[in-house]
Write a protein that binds this DNA or RNA. Structure first.
Length: 803
RNA sequence: GCGAAAGUGGCGGAAUUGGCAGACGCGCUGGACUUAGGAUCCAGUGAGGAUAACUCAUAGGGGUUCAAGUCCCCUCUUUCGCACCA
């Protein structure tokens, strides 16, 4: 009998072999095919690794180890996305420097990751807060600035009074701060933006060139929110003057049904025509109220339409030349389209609600069975036919749209227009622990990027980097650093005191891994030409509309300026599901259902933890942690260990019950498709077969060891070396299956009579219908019935229709 | 409201894409070995039925088919994403 498996000692032994020997480090080797597998690098929080990380990393860990055994040159790097608020807040609270906090957190993460046995290329570790890294984050910002893709503009921003930081729209959904959950308020500020909207089209079209799950593509498409339509100019009559107001519509074909115009409360035209607005005080009051409603409130209170007519003001429908009333209403948003709409109540729910509330005319322009006076008819299938629309009567909607746009162009009142929901990326934060924005403000020269040879622009050393109450950056308190000279004219100038958002460093880290120590390039061109695209990137669904879009944007920009040669950074993307607490709820400290991986490691060891996290369920779906379930994986691995006790020379073993070729095909294929749970289930079944047979061959142990090695590398390394006189499993080759040997000689198939299961017969593989029927009769399954019809699916099933 | 995905034993989940529903694991029941069992091994385990034949079972209802968890129609539920987007 083999000794009990001492996971503590054996896991330590192999980790030493891997990490001291640096065996996962790779160099560009043109003779070997490369494989670049990437995980989302962690934020090194003080609480350390959680089980969610382990699920997220384990998929690419399995793929990386498997690809190495399959003789690929595998780049599987690790790093830390270490700028950010929690570290800074913790540093302030504990009166330490964030640098110190970050370093000790990173150290802890590294120890934990190594104790799980991950096969990262440790020599390539990057840290976004390292000046040698953020030098290049700043460099990319300067390139964006030089191309006019970084600009500063005054806007109202979402401000979290708790974190004292400006938030992007993505970080303040539903009007609450993403981080602390407190209510966001609106504040007027100068804000840096990156013109991601300029890349909306290529971000959209690029999706067709990559292998992302459909749900991820859909989410990104929705986020970008492309719509096509037209801009149409209405003239507003204000006293003796006419003012053009442009509306955006996706349905220019319905313009004959446009019976009123609605302006957003913020629309600038209101100020221009205010002398002719007879009920101006009422309007000003409404504007004021709208301003105090936060954006999310305007959205949430959408049930009731409010608005006020502009008395004394009219607009002209440019197609009918009829006068129509003009309203201001907060259901129209200033930041989408043009901030003004033509309302077509017959065919738009919101316009219809508004028209009903204000007693406005409703004119049907698309034929339907619906009485549009009673409910709006919203066209969905593009099959409607236009009515009451002189220029386009009788046309189906799609043709009506293009004809109408054409007519509008002739009349000079409209033109085609494409719009996007996605807004430019607010790119600054008023915090200390981030990359300083490398721009100097000079009274004479304006905004001047600091010369590239002066990068990195280091964060100044400060004693007190707590946030200010007035929403300006802590860096503004550091006057020595703020006051500088203009790189162009040499005159006095001041530095930008804001820092970049946390998304900055993570937008290009996958490139830095290729040449993490290069001083001359963000990414070394030679290294890039070898590693190129990330072959497979796994991460969370929560990053699909932020990090994944931002980093695609940066990569596309770097492609445009010739830094990289692939337009898309990631060839394939997968996403793991959440690990929930044992109660099926999201893990959280307040619920007390958090599983600490260190405890699991202590009780079961790394291999069991790794196996279980992959066996727990469908990789892409959420799965509750099961404290009992993990025991099944522990038993599985100890049964695997016990294989050595029943090892017999090949000639004494009848192994016709186990098809190794099929096993290889299933396991390999399941790994490639993220079906880790079923891959492990197949290996369990193989062990069940072997143990019920009672003996095992060396070939079987070796095949199973190699198949299982990516999941449980320690125990398989050990057993492989025991069985093979000290040979190293990482020098072995992953097994290949023989396609000719996938089918067994005989197969048992079900026999159905009248569609009901009535028995089973064992047949030679590939038998024809006659011989199967003969077997069926032989076994008396027909019971003297008359056969009317037989449906036989080869090697699968036979169904007999009989009386 | 719009869009997407999903609903299978006590639980996590399988099902070669229309072909034996419940693989694999947990849990549970009985047994063996044990001073002991939160160790290990063996057997059983969807429900009903005399533990037999058989019948019923994949959210509910209808349909297509020799054959439906899988395809079609309707209803319900859940999760996720987007949301006064013009």
């Amino acid at each position: 009998m083999a000794k009990d498996y001492d996971f503590k000692a054996i896991e330590k032994k192999w980790q030493n072999y891997w990490y001291k020997g640096n065996i996962f480090e790779v160099t560009e080797d043109p003779n070997k095919e490369k494989f670049y597998s990437l995980i989302e690098f962690p934020y090194p929080s003080g609480s350390g690794l959680h089980v969610g990380h382990i699920r997220a990393f384990s998929s690419m860990e399995v793929i990386s180890r498997k690809k190495r055994l399959q003789q690929y040159n595998v780049l599987f790097p690790i790093g830390y996305d270490a700028f950010g608020l929690p570290t800074e807040n913790y540093a302030i609270k504990t009166k330490q420097h964030p640098r110190k906090v970050t370093d000790s957190n990173i150290k802890k993460f590294e120890e934990q990751l190594k104790s799980i046995g991950y096969s990262f290329c440790w020599d390539r570790t990057v840290d976004t807060t390292d000046p040698s890294y953020y030098k290049w984050t700043q460099w990319i910002f300067i390139q964006l600035f030089k191309k006019g893709l970084a600009y500063k503009s005054k806007t109202t921003v979402n401000f979290c009074p708790e974190c004292k930081v400006v938030l992007a729209n993505e970080e303040s959904q539903n009007g609450v701060c993403d981080r602390c959950g407190s209510e966001v308020i609106q504040k007027e500020k100068d804000v840096w933006f990156l013109k991601i909207r300029d890349y909306a089209e290529t971000l959209l079209s690029g999706l067709s060139t990559v292998n992302f799950p459909e749900r991820i593509k859909t989410e990104q498409e929705n986020w970008i929110g492309k719509s096509t339509g037209a801009e149409v100019t209405f003239q507003i009559i204000s006293g003796d003057d006419q003012h053009p107001v442009v509306v955006y519509t996706t349905r220019p074909d319905t313009i004959y049904g446009a019976t009123f115009l609605v302006l957003s409360p913020e629309h600038p035209i209101i100020h221009a025509i205010e002398e002719n607005i007879q009920n101006l005080p009422e309007i000003l009051d409404y504007q004021d109220k709208a301003r105090h409603k936060k954006e999310f409130e305007r959205v949430q209170l959408s049930k009731e339409k409010t608005g006020i007519i502009l008395k004394g003001i009219k607009a002209i429908n440019p197609l009918t030349n009829k006068e129509i009333p003009v309203f201001v209403a907060d259901y129209v948003m200033m930041d989408y389209g043009t901030g003004a709409i033509m309302a077509v109540p017959a065919h738009d729910k919101r316009d219809w609600d508004f028209a009903k509330a204000f007693g406005l005319p409703i004119i049907e322009v698309i034929k339907s069975d619906v009485d549009v006076q009673k409910e709006p008819y919203v066209e969905k299938n593009d099959k409607g036919i236009m009515v009451n629309s002189p220029l386009i009567n009788g046309l189906p909607v799609p043709e009506a749209i293009s004809k109408m746009i054409h007519e509008m162009e002739i009349l000079g009142v409209g033109k085609p227009k494409t719009d996007y929901k996605m807004k430019d990326w607010a790119f600054n934060r008023q915090r200390y622990w981030g990359e300083p924005i490398p721009i100097v403000n000079c009274k004479k020269c304006g905004q001047v990027p600091i010369p590239e040879e002066q990068l990195p622009l280091l964060l100044p050393e400060m004693k007190d980097f707590s946030p200010t109450d007035d929403a300006s950056s802590p860096l503004s308190k550091c006057s020595d650093w703020v006051n500088t000279v203009c790189p162009i004219c040499g005159g006095p100038a001041t530095r930008e005191t804001d820092t970049m958002p946390q998304w900055a460093g993570s937008s290009w880290y996958f490139l830095r891994y290729m040449s993490p120590k290069d001083d001359n390039f963000a990414v070394n061109p030679e290294a890039y030409s070898y590693w190129g695209q990330v072959d497979w990137y796994n991460g969370g669904m929560e990053h699909v509309t932020r990090h994944l879009i931002y980093s695609r944007f940066w990569n596309q920009f770097l492609y445009d300026i010739g830094v990289v040669t692939n337009k898309e950074p990631y060839a394939r993307r997968s996403a793991q599901g959440l690990i929930l607490g044992a109660d099926g709820e999201k893990m959280s400290k307040s619920r007390g259902n958090v599983v600490n991986p260190d405890d699991v490691l202590k009780d079961y060891g790394a291999d069991v933890l790794r196996t279980f996290i992959l066996f727990i369920g469908d990789y892409e779906k959420p799965a509750p942690w099961s404290p009992d379930g993990i025991k099944g994986c522990q038993r599985f691995l100890s049964r695997y260990w016990a294989l050595q006790d029943i090892l017999k020379p090949d000639k004494y073993v009848d192994n016709s019950d186990l098809n190794l070729d099929l096993l290889i095909k299933k396991v390999d294929g399941d790994y490639e498709n993220c079906k880790f749970n079923t891959a492990i289930a197949f290996l369990m079944t193989a062990l069940n077969t072997i143990f019920s047979r009672g003996c095992v061959t060396k070939k079987e142990i070796n095949t199973i060891s190699l198949l299982l090695n990516p999941v449980a590398p320690h125990i398989t390394s050990e057993l492989f070396s025991i069985i093979n006189d000290g040979a190293m499993i990482d020098k072995a080759v992953f097994p290949k299956y023989n396609p000719d040997k996938l089918v067994m000689d005989s197969v048992e198939i079900p026999v159905q009579i009248m569609g009901k299961l009535r028995g089973k017969v064992v047949i030679q593989t590939g038998s024809d219908e006659e011989s199967v029927m003969a077997t069926v009769k032989e076994q008396g399954l027909l019971d003297g019935k008359t056969v009317l019809k037989v449906i036989y699916v080869k090697d699968r099933i036979i169904n007999i229709i009989a009386k």
